[in-house]
Write a protein that binds this DNA or RNA. Structure first.
Lengths: 231, 231
DNA sequence: AACTGCCAGCTGCTATAGCAGTTGTCCATG
DNA sequence: CATGGACAACTGCTATAGCAGCTGGCAGTT
């Protein structure tokens, strides 16, 4: 590595995932899409045979799902898909709003200039996509916005918790945050205001704005009900 | 189950834990107590042999620890104990404050009358223990207070996340929240005020007070620094 | 001496087999 | 008919063995 840099891209970070990871995603998708309905019993052996793999990866996946609250397993009894009603979804949404708020606060303190610039670029792209009413592009940009912000915190616990919560997005037939056409301008303004708070390194302001943004978004998407206690 | 309830205590809830659970606690304690220092490499096989068990439970424990942020494992490379500096502890403390706040909000909405009465009894006991300056009793009561409140939310994800965060308590040679003698009266007042908010079914107020309580407690214990941005 | 390729020794990961509880059914018993 | 106990068929849990990838060092070549 003395001479100039080698002109090749690094390999894709996850060309082949572990069986446990694949089983986890498979089961998770099955649950949120309704294929595996609440109350369904999931046997390690049966599911392993159905997936064509061994029982260990399935077990590992079930443990993770249990941590996520999607299944509940009684020792030596069995594992069943948990009931995830609207009220539970609302709770998880409020938890998510709180965590994303903390992430914004931490990001306001630690975030690098490059990350800030990237967020600014994303917000600019959002402006165009909003004008074009491109819902798909907005969903993608929104995902990147939050991902960069969360990654900037450098806190793995926070990132993983939010990742787990994000898995619930596909449940109530809602796709991604801020994708409904009517609230696109709102979401754009909110993202811009969050970015402004990050630029001024104001943790409290960034947190309040992020939290409000997530709560508002979940409300317009029907996950949360009335604007009872917000902020 | 027709006649009166059977006059026997249920079996001790965890007379014999699974090996995976025991390995998890063992390793977790080793990390927070400093026996397993940051950077230490943990091999599934070696650790299994050291604990006198198989490799699977150890692997399961490592996965959980990774989720908690205490270890980080690179696929096919190895698992090492994560570095947990003061800044990370502070982050986790802020996350915890936010989550306990949400728990208080949810509890204010859902909590039953019996649970409220139990919390009231605990606060009364706290009053006595504070007068007697009984730190140990206060720590115990404090733990029960938060446990009951969190359990009243009925949200497993929330409970498990807070449980994971609680594991970090033993790290910076601090034992439990609110155990330092000087802030006993403060903690007592805060618990009482939280209880009051719960009684009036005010989620926003309960959340704000709980969050302030946790942040204040972590601050006086040295986990958090100046009262920069609170509330 | 500097570089390249090979290879033993790790590592996490997966498969197979078997243990130990739990449950529901069926038959013997009151 | 009602009741209780034993057995079979599950379940999750654990142990053992072996696979696949990565690392570091040792030799062989230039």
């Amino acid at each position: 590595m003395s001479a100039g840099t080698i002109p090749v891209e690094p390999l894709a970070e996850e060309e082949t995932l572990s069986l446990g990871e694949r089983a986890y995603r498979r089961l998770r998708d099955g649950i949120v899409q309704g294929t595996l309905r609440p109350g369904s019993r999931i046997s390690e052996r049966s599911m392993a045979q159905a997936l064509g793999i061994s029982a260990q990866p399935v077990r590992e996946a079930l443990r993770r799902l249990e941590h996520d609250g999607m299944v509940v397993t009684l020792p030596r009894r069995g594992t069943v898909v948990a009931e995830i009603g609207p009220e539970r979804l609302a709770e998880l949404g409020r938890i998510r709003a709180a965590l994303e708020g903390v992430a914004a606060a931490l990001a306001a303190e630690r975030m690098s200039g490059e990350d800030l610039a990237e967020l600014a670029a994303i917000v600019r792209s959002m402006r165009g996509a909003t004008a074009a009413a491109d819902a798909e592009a907005l969903a993608e940009l929104n995902e990147r916005f939050h991902a960069i912000l969360q990654g900037a915190t450098g806190n793995l616990f926070l990132v993983k918790s939010l990742e787990a919560l994000r898995a619930y997005d596909d449940l109530g037939r809602l796709r991604a945050l801020g994708s409904t056409p009517k609230d696109m301008p709102k979401a754009l303004r909110e993202h811009a205001s969050i970015l402004a708070a990050l630029k001024t390194r104001d943790p409290a302001l960034a947190e309040a704005r992020m939290r409000h943004h997530v709560l508002r978004s979940l409300t317009t998407n029907g996950v949360l009900a009335a604007p009872r206690q917000g902020r």
